[in-house]
Design a binder for these strands. Structure first.
Lengths: 255, 255
DNA sequence: CTGATCGTTCGTCATCGTCGAACAGTTTAT
DNA sequence: ATAAACTGTTCGACGATGACGAACGATCAG
């Protein structure tokens, strides 16, 4: 999958270490042998990588089994706070969740994926698998569409080339033209929607966040499809979401 | 500093990548040239590492300058939630902060450092530089002492050998015997204290958390030294802290 | 327009990452 | 109790590959 590069100066040993870390993540911790056969590396190679990573705090060993280390938490919190949006969006998102009772997210694009940087739950918010730090595809999330709609066409194309339009439910948009239409209508009316396109029964509305004319992220509000189905109540809900986005944009411009 | 190892099979290129990541962290993002001269690597080497790390989401480039990527947030949140203590301690810590109005931490030991895995602020809690994910030395924090006091003597020695007893204030304990005495008295009475040993004006009380007879972490409560100076009110405060710790220990044993 | 600086590309050489075999513990099954 | 089948770890040697300096094109300051 990566041997076709040819002249690229990518460091194989570093990528091996990353593969070990990914495996440790997928398997929720594992031993040398398990990782070695999962990646088709030799045991000694895996051991070398693990001990190097452990010496640096990215891995921790508990009597034969290895896990990801707390140094990731250190870097992770730093990266979260380094996002200009975080400090501003956090209180606004929390307030919107309290007002509406639903779950509210703030997401940022990086590497073609939308990542949750902060989240707040309302009183009646439903369960979800989206946590802070979760990466999600942009074609099937309300916030992702909001961001995608405001990128250069080339960039959008590149993102769709890289990640495809994976189908999660019967409602997921899997055709490019369909998605482009959706992005255009969303761009025109100022908000975006994900109607059970990622999880059955879950609908979300998304609004982009602009700073200096550039879209730097988006907020989205998600809840049960039943509750968010009507067009009448949506008007009220949407003005609340757009109002929150507006507050964030203004706050962002003053710091 | 590491060339004296001799026979160790540590992967130099991986450690170089880690050094690049650390530099990116220290400098809050930087360009190739800046990193290269900061680490005394060649520009092309730094570039190779950065592009490899970027291809994997650990670094992101914004027009010439590089920053740490959001993938660290993904891993960081995962590691946080992977700690058995996290889910149990979070609500208990929050409640204690509300009750007392002070700032409360839950910390876990790894690689000889105490790392904050969750934290809650009370209404009158003071400012601090401790965030979730912050690593701190164990000899000068209340939670760190609580954990240190219950490790094997060999382990404690190894930790002090590795990290030393760095002096932060005039109150910091910098001699081993002094620390061992302090750990013993704390172990006997069941709680530990840090009286302005890390930051002037900040005092903290710490209590260990046991699971199956083993200490897996600690909680601590910190506030202004003035407020936490008396011995009378401390009695009340300490029973609240110990009671919270007790709740966590019981909850932990039932999952 | 010019000089200096940036990030990037490229090809070479010597380093050092990889592997298999052997090691020492630990658990499982007989 | 004993052996067989694991585990993680150590070690040395070979050859892939990571590091470097030089040259590149792009950008910015004066």
């Amino acid at each position: 999958m990566d041997t076709t590069d040819g002249s690229s100066h990518t460091l194989g040993s570093v990528e091996k270490s990353i593969a070990v870390l990914e495996t440790l993540w997928k398997l929720d911790g594992a031993g040398v042998t398990r990782i070695a056969q999962s990646l088709d590396f030799s045991k000694s190679t895996v051991h070398d990588h693990l001990s190097t990573l452990e010496r640096n705090g990215f891995v921790v060993s508990n009597g034969g089994t290895y896990e990801l280390g707390l140094r990731f938490l250190n870097f992770g919190e730093y990266v979260k706070r380094a996002q200009p949006l975080y400090a501003v969006a956090k209180p606004a998102v929390t307030e919107l969740a309290e007002q509406t009772g639903e779950r509210v997210f703030c997401m940022v694009e990086q590497h073609g994926l939308a990542t949750v940087i902060c989240l707040a739950e309302g009183e009646r918010s439903v369960q979800t698998d989206l946590r802070v730090g979760t990466h999600s595809y942009m074609h099937c999330s309300a916030a992702g569409k909001a961001i995608l709609a405001h990128l250069d066409r080339d960039r959008t194309e590149a993102i769709l080339d890289r990640w495809g339009l994976k189908k999660f439910t019967g409602e997921t948009i899997t055709e490019r033209d369909h998605l482009y239409d959706e992005l255009e209508t969303g761009r025109d009316r100022g908000w975006f929607v994900n109607r059970e396109e990622y999880r059955p029964g879950v609908t979300a509305f998304g609004v982009p966040l602009r700073s200096n004319g550039e879209v730097t992220g988006a907020i989205s509000l998600s809840g049960p499809a039943m509750r968010l189905a009507g067009d009448w109540e949506d008007r009220e809900l949407l003005t609340q979401i757009r109002s929150t986005a507006n507050v964030i944009e203004v706050d962002l411009s003053f710091q």
